[in-house]
Design a protein around this nucleic acid. Structure first.
Lengths: 335, 335
DNA sequence: CTGAAAGCGCTAACAT
DNA sequence: ATGTTAGCGCTTTCAG
């Protein structure tokens, strides 16, 4: 690795002269600047990032903790985070908690030693279930900023980026009601998550407000990914008169649609389906699934912006919660 | 941030004593060690990673460059890389090239300044098309180790992890031939990639070896993701007698299956389909797609192992290419 | 057993 | 216009 020292020795000047020259300091003669820069270029000098980080107590690196990278929502969020961070001159160190609290703790601990300037994260399922997030407040107490997106916790006072989960499900349910649906079922693979509960509440609330709706809310909760198909099979078996399905997770809407077609339901004439997915699943469905779009790119981008603002502002400002608008996109599985 | 200096001042000992005590040095009295450790724990002291990196000229961090995180193969590879790296005490800095050569160059440049000890990457589509990888050889010339997985280049002399793309497609095609298929079509969305070419060659070779197969190889290349569905519609329109489909990318096999069913083909009686996907798509298909499994987890894990070996070995060893076995998994879309 | 000093690579205040 | 020095936090050799 080429250092300032090397350049200085070759040019018979001091290290500080070289440093200043490379920064176009007024103090250095144009001639010297040229010579220094020429040699630097020739030797492919690159300032050592680690040394600069140490000097500045600032790494320009963000720690990102993702619960499950195989979930398309999070992959897309990571995509957006990396893009915005990169644009703003930050690198990201990625940790995957794989929904485990222990891994989440470990990542926070390992990186809160000067490795990163701050964190962007979404809370692991295990931590949400245990409702134990002291490992995150610990980090905040060390004055390391954290931005939490999507899966948040009220016990943590920090910047957050969420969507209006309640409102999104409420709106989707309202739409099905407006179609005259009489037997609307909600499917959830994320019953344990904060967002899952909120979405479910939105559904229940919309139904309860509908005076001419007589069925009780019917909620199918699915615990493990492996049983999605079975559970949905059963749903149709036990509720043949279902005429509206709202799926509040990434995948079950697609599976429900596929099974419905297999069972010869007319979609959307006799049965409407609304999913909570990104566009990526559309190529796998025909008719095209109507969905609630979460604007995942905005979620990632906003998270980075909040964090960088926090890093740049000297004074302690109050935590901000940014709510990203969702959009109900009616395609071919709704009337 | 609490430092050795803080501890030293509080305890009225020197910084070096504190450092040694924390490392259980023989030189330090048990009593002092206890006092130091107690205070360190009490103040939640964590050794500054940046300072250690600078001191050791070693970051214990791997730069990972992923062409497209929205592609499930790469998400899974990243998952495996992170897992193994984490296990071995390494962090990963993730960069997403988004298939752009410029971004790839940028990431390599930005991180090759001491930020990472080495790289694991798969080559961006744009770089593969241009067949221009000097930015990668540049890094190697700076004695920074690089491991390339999946999409490789013969122009680069470094450790590589690949699958037997030719053999995998060859085997799949052979299987379709053994079923007695007479009109086997290959679908590719990755015609520009090294792996795409190899897989195509495997298909062609298998057909050419089949003396009783009379049709010419038929290859459908799809340039953009948006047109997968159209292209496949056309495939069925122009080749109604197709009785075997082999898809060499992540998604087109699923789409083909879905369209085939829509068009009332009997799968697998009249038409067999083999995809090149991971298990994740299975929940979206019925019948379950037969696939070539790439053992993506092994690919990621091996990449990390090769890199760390390279980092730990002093002497220049010859580059290694590790080939991960693929497996043809016959499910419900083949006889 | 403890401490002083040098150095990793860089910057910046302070000489000259 | 150029150089010296100190210091970011840590480890390690060498002195005491």
């Amino acid at each position: 690795m080429v250092t300032l020292k090397h350049l200085a020795e070759q040019l018979n000047v001091s290290i500080s002269t070289v440093s200043k020259a490379l920064h176009d300091s007024e103090e250095i003669s144009p001639d010297t600047i040229d010579r220094v820069k020429a040699l630097a270029k020739h030797l492919n000098y690159k300032p050592n990032k680690v040394a600069i980080s140490l000097k500045n107590s600032k790494t320009n690196t963000i720690g990102v903790i993702i619960p499950n990278i195989l979930n398309h929502f999070f992959a897309k969020a990571l995509y957006a985070i990396e893009k915005e961070a990169s644009k703003q001159g930050y690198n990201i160190i990625t940790c995957l908690s794989n929904e485990k609290k222990a891994k989440e703790i470990n990542s926070l601990q390992l990186l809160s030693n000067g490795s990163v300037d701050g964190f962007i994260m979404s809370i692991a399922e295990e931590s949400q279930i245990a409702n134990n997030v002291t490992h995150i407040t610990d980090i905040l107490n060390q004055h390391i900023p954290v931005v939490i997106f999507d899966r948040v916790s009220e016990s943590i006072e920090c910047d957050k980026v969420i969507i209006d989960d309640f409102g999104a499900a409420y709106e989707a349910t309202k739409h099905l009601l407006s179609e005259g649906r009489k037997h609307i079922v909600l499917i959830s693979c994320i019953d344990d998550l904060s967002v899952g509960k909120l979405r479910t509440n939105g559904y229940v609330e919309a139904l309860s407000e509908a005076s001419d709706y007589n069925n009780k809310p019917k909620i199918i909760t699915i615990k493990t990914n492996d049983t999605i198909e079975e559970s949905i099979q059963e749903l149709f078996k036990n509720n043949p008169s279902v005429d509206g399905i709202i799926s509040i997770d990434n995948t079950s809407g697609v599976v429900a649609l596929q099974k419905a077609i297999k069972l010869n339901y007319n979609v959307p004439e006799d049965l409407s389906i609304i999913g909570f997915s990104d566009e990526n699943v559309l190529q796998f469905t025909d008719p095209k699934l109507s969905t609630i779009s979460q604007h995942t790119l905005d979620i990632g981008k906003s998270s980075v912006q909040l964090l960088i603002n926090r890093l740049k502002s000297k004074d302690q400002q109050k935590p901000v919660t940014k709510t990203i608008k969702t959009k109900l996109i009616l395609r071919e599985t709704t009337k």
